Computed example of a mutant assay.
Amino acid sequence: MSKYTALIAVLFMSTLFSCRSTKTLTSAEANYNLSTKQVIRENSRQAAKFRTLDSKVKLSYDADGRSQSYSISLRIEKDQKIWMSSAFSVVKAMITPDGVSYYNKLDKTYFEGDFSYLSELLGIPLDFTKAQNLILGELLYPVKTQGFTSEVLDNNYVVQPKNQNELFELFFLIDPAMFKVNSQQMAQASLRRLLQIDYQKYQEVQKQIIPETIRILAVEGNQEAIIELDFKNTSLNESLRFPFKIPSGYQKIEL
């Protein structure tokens, strides 16, 4: 298994929500008079609020010269667990604050571990909260107003640290209409590494603003992986089960 195939496998395990009736949101012109504090505060107010989520997700990826698509069932218990299952439950995955697990019925293998491997692949320290924020369109890193600055560029509020780290640069693009994240970009120029998460479409669901289409680009050197997620036929705040048990006799793999 190559590192980017593994990256896809783990990203496959970490994905959003909506409800029965939805509407796509429109755009607006950015207000040049808003301060950084106001932009960050409005973004914080739009954080998704729910207990549970149930959704069907179309996941497409292009990596290592191969393109594939999957239909996935997704369930989330907010701040507790992210559960995913492929068609016929061939692959099941569970992410909790304690770590990452998945098993594959086709080759009878499983993985259990912490977030260290995924953090190494993405080039950023990753934990459950960041994984959940990634798929909900929330900022991966906490933004403190005194340490950040903003400007309007191409009708987006571009929020970034006042003093970028020489080894690790952050950029957040905030939509002027919804104040949700349009893009999160993390770059390590010295390692030729980039992670870019674009929220290409949002929708309003039960008065919550949530992503509808996400595109993830992970680059290291001359290798890249592209993951696209489309969320449909979903529900919110229902009573859900999260069945997950690694079958006996499966072989543990090391990533």
Rank of each mutant, 00 (worst) to 15 (best):
N182L: 06
S89A: 15
V100D: 06
R215E: 04
K245W: 01
N222L: 10
I210W: 02
D154P: 02
V57M: 13
F172N: 05
T234C: 15
F171K: 12
N233T: 03
D154I: 00
L153Q: 14
N233D: 10
G65D: 03
A187F: 07
M178S: 15
A225M: 07
Y141F: 15
R41Q: 13
I216T: 07
T15S: 15
V159D: 01
L167Q: 12
S150Q: 01
A30T: 01
F172L: 10
E169G: 01
N182R: 13
A189Q: 08
L118Q: 06
L74N: 10
V10Q: 11
L122P: 03
R41Y: 10
D127H: 09
V159P: 02
R45L: 14
Y117E: 09
I253M: 12
T129E: 15
D98Q: 15
G113L: 09
I214T: 13
E166V: 12
D54V: 06
Q188F: 04
S183E: 11
V181Y: 03
A225E: 00
L229G: 02
Y110R: 06
Y61L: 04
F242S: 02
L34Q: 08
S73L: 05
L240R: 12
E112D: 13
P125R: 08
D154V: 00
L11G: 03
D198E: 10
K81Y: 03
L191R: 12
N233I: 01
V219Q: 13
T109K: 15
L170M: 13
G249K: 09
Y32P: 01
T234R: 06
S239L: 13
V57F: 07
Q38H: 01
T22Y: 11
S86D: 09
L236F: 09
L255T: 00
I253Q: 10
A187Y: 09
E77C: 05
Q38R: 07
K3E: 11
T36P: 02
E228F: 06
G113H: 04
L217V: 08
